[in-house]
Simulated assay, not measured.
Amino acid sequence: MIQYRRRGIGTLLLAKSEDTIHERCEVAGLDIGLLSDYGAAQSLYIIRGYVPDGKGIYKNGKYLKCG
């Protein structure tokens, strides 16, 4: 839905999500696709101050391995 990009919708949704998470949780994580299809989301997260930790995907108490 490219026609809805760059209108601030993602920023508003992410800000509300961050507020809700902050009220309910001590720690939260975010994962994202690495392909170019996710480029807009990747840019948004960087603008919002998210930085990849380089450790990979964490799920169910452990880091996932390739494959």
Rank of each mutant, 00 (worst) to 15 (best):
Leu44Pro: 03
Ile57Glu: 11
Asp31His: 07
Leu35Gly: 12
Gly54Asp: 04
Gly33Thr: 00
Leu14Cys: 13
Lys65Val: 01
Leu14Pro: 10
Tyr45Cys: 01
Ala28Phe: 05
Asp37Gly: 13
Gly67His: 04
Leu14His: 10
Tyr38His: 06
Glu26His: 07
Glu26Asp: 13
Gly33Cys: 01
Gln42Glu: 04
Ser36His: 08
His22Asn: 10
Tyr4His: 09
Ala40Ile: 01
Gly67Pro: 05
Lys62Gln: 14
Ala40Leu: 06
Leu34Met: 11
Lys16Cys: 13
Cys25Ser: 09
Ile47Val: 09
Cys25Val: 01
Ser36Asn: 11
Met1Thr: 03
Leu34Phe: 13
Asn60Asp: 14
Gly49Trp: 02
Tyr50Pro: 05
Ile32Met: 10
Met1Ile: 01
Cys25Lys: 01
Ile9Asp: 11
Thr11Lys: 08
Ala28Thr: 02
Gly61Lys: 00
Tyr58Gln: 08
Leu12Lys: 12
Gly39Phe: 09
Glu18Lys: 02
Asp31Trp: 06
Tyr63Ala: 10
Leu35Thr: 04
Glu18Leu: 06
Asp19Pro: 08
Leu34Asp: 13
Gly54Lys: 00
Leu64Arg: 03
Ser17Ala: 14
Ile57Trp: 10
Ala41Val: 00
Pro52Gln: 07
Gly10Arg: 01
Pro52Tyr: 05
Lys65Asn: 07
Ala28Cys: 07
Gly61Trp: 02
Ser43Trp: 03
Ala41Gln: 04
Leu30Asp: 11
Asn60Thr: 06
Lys62Asp: 15
Thr11Trp: 05
Gly61Ser: 04
Lys55Tyr: 10
Leu35Trp: 09
Gly29Ser: 08
Leu14Tyr: 12
Asp31Lys: 03
Gly67Tyr: 03
Asp53Asn: 09
Ile57Leu: 11
Ala15Ser: 11
Tyr45Asp: 03
Lys16Glu: 15
Ile21Asn: 07
Val27Asp: 15
Arg48Pro: 11
Thr20Met: 14
Asp37Trp: 07
Lys16Tyr: 13
Tyr38Pro: 01
Met1Lys: 03
Gly39Thr: 03
Tyr50Thr: 02
Lys65Gly: 10
Lys65Gln: 06
Gln3Cys: 05
Ala41Glu: 04
Ile9Lys: 07
Pro52Lys: 03
Thr20Trp: 14
Ile57Thr: 09
Cys25Met: 07
Gly29Thr: 02
